[in-house]
């Protein structure tokens, strides 16, 4: 039997262009990161990734990113619900504005948030009267991370809210469930897999975020120094292996977190069945 070849032309050209560009721009540079990181051996890599200053920056980055992602999870669920279910003047503008943190360059967001939350800024002066310092503390970092991660959960949950059939909610109400009970036991479980995807994206974005954080952070070692900033500092000190070690550690921890989120998603999908 003759193997039927695809009648479509351009496979070799398409695959060639794809693989060549992917290799030059993404794959070879990432391999170079691992080569540099492992060049002095695994013990050396482990040593620089767990040195006190690096460990402190990783802990700070991942801790604040997790908190920001949890806040964005709640905020995103409310925003997705309000934007798809309710009709009110200005809804479309609010909907478009959700994407602003995606569209606004991070350096712009960074200096704007700093001006806003600095002790002499519009919001910062209010907090100052209450005796709270926002800019140049971990609070400032948290606000920047909430800003950049805001759109993810909203955008992943919105299409799911649209697809929920009203009959499901009516059935629940007919069976005597209160509205709150329906939301908690029927609607939220349906939204959870998408919400977790958004949570993971928001977390990954926050962990790697640089531009919007460094202006507001204060950048004190052990206190407000995020991991990406420490990479830049190590590079400026010509300590390439240490920079590579932090980069590899960030990739490894992010990968581990995304794996856990995927597992939770699989479990929650099993519990509610496929929708």
């Amino acid at each position: 039997m003759i193997v039927q070849r695809s009648p479509m032309p351009g496979f070799a050209l398409g695959l060639g262009v794809t693989l060549t560009m992917l290799s030059i721009v993404v794959l070879i540079p990432i391999v170079a990161l691992f080569v540099e990181g492992f060049s002095a051996g695994l013990p050396a890599l482990w040593g620089s990734a767990t040195s006190p200053r690096v460990a402190a920056s990783l802990w700070l980055s991942f801790r604040l990113s997790l908190i920001a992602a949890v806040i964005n999870l709640g905020l995103g669920l409310v925003l997705a619900w309000v934007l798809t279910r309710y009709r009110f003047p200005g809804r479309r503008i609010l909907d478009a504005a959700v994407d602003l943190p995606f569209a606004l360059p991070t350096a712009v967001a960074g200096i704007a948030l700093t001006a806003l939350y600095a002790p002499n800024g519009a919001f910062g002066s209010l907090f100052k009267e209450m005796g709270v310092k926002i800019a140049y503390t971990q609070w400032g970092i948290l606000i920047a991370l909430i800003f950049v991660g805001l759109p993810f959960v909203t955008r992943t949950v919105q299409p799911v809210v649209e697809e929920i059939e009203r009959e499901v909610e009516e059935a629940s109400a007919t069976l005597g469930a209160s509205r709150f009970y329906t939301i908690r036991r029927v609607i939220l479980p349906l939204l959870m897999p998408a919400a977790l995807t958004g949570f993971g994206l928001s977390l990954a974005r926050a962990v790697g975020e640089y531009g919007s954080v460094i202006f507001i952070a204060g950048n004190l070692p052990f206190k407000t120094e995020i991991a990406p900033l420490l990479i830049v500092i190590k590079l400026e000190e010509y300590d390439d292996p240490a920079a590579a070690a932090i980069g590899i550690a960030m990739l490894a921890i992010s990968f581990g977190l995304l794996l856990i989120i995927n597992l939770v998603q699989i479990i929650s999908r099993r519990r509610i069945g496929h929708v």
């Binding site: 990161l33 990406p228 590079l235």
Partner: peptide, 15 residues
């Protein structure tokens, strides 16, 4: 999508 921009820059520098 899942690599920090700073790590992306680092990869380019190392290559």
């Amino acid at each position: 999508f899942s690599v920090s921009p700073v790590v992306a820059g680092l990869c380019i520098v190392l290559t």
